[in-house]
Amino acid sequence: MNVVVCVKQIPDPAAPQSLDAAYNLNRSGKLILDEADTYGVEMALQLVERAGGGEVTVVSMGSAADVSGLRNALAMGASKAIVVSDDALRGTDALGTAKVLAAAIAPVAPDLVLAATESSDGYTGTVPVQLAELLDMPSITFAKSVAVEGSNVTVQRQTEAGYDEVSAPLPAVVTVTAGVVEPRYASFKGIMAAKSKPLEVLSVADLGLAAQVGPAGARQAITSVVAAEARQAGAKYVDDGEGAAKIVAFLESIKVL
């Protein structure tokens, strides 16, 4: 079974984030593999192991100048990486991203495409299902468990009330939540092996998508960024045994008690 995992290298969420003059997220610092994507990589590796053969390919859009995050996925056990990297992609929106990923993934002809429910930097959360539509595949989002039996994928999908059992024929797109599996750490052997694994870099021209990417393809624009209405911090006490009493008094003052 061949599985594609969509991954993204993002600025470290623990570091301060900012927008540049064109309102794009500042990505000039060190990039890391989005932690949300490590669950998909792990899930893919386990599914391929269970199927008794096949390959995991990670596919990404973003700068090829720093690919340590993709190497990390290869070190975990993925067989190869494809990254679509092009200055023309700066400012591409979710649909444009899905078009790029679809064009890069289609030749791989995977049985299953996995992705996180959303990236940890942009949070748009629509790319995987846009991708499914462009690839003419069914999609199941918000999986908390994934199993493949024969030519079907079965998923426990989160709902407002609990979860649904959902099944779809392969090939399909499934988005996984954090916690679907415990991602493995790359072994030393894996890290060494990753250095010689294939990492293919594609341009927008390679995919024939020029007019549909970048700010022009996005057909949306940020008009301004303003400070949110600030909440005033109230009293802060160091607990000296009276912390609980202070909370009770506060709850009384707002008539909750």
Partner: peptide, 13 residues
């Protein structure tokens, strides 16, 4: 093929 994902059971927590 797009609408072939089906709910087979629902669990309420």
């Amino acid at each position: 093929r797009t609408a072939t994902a089906r709910v087979t059971a629902s669990h309420v927590e």
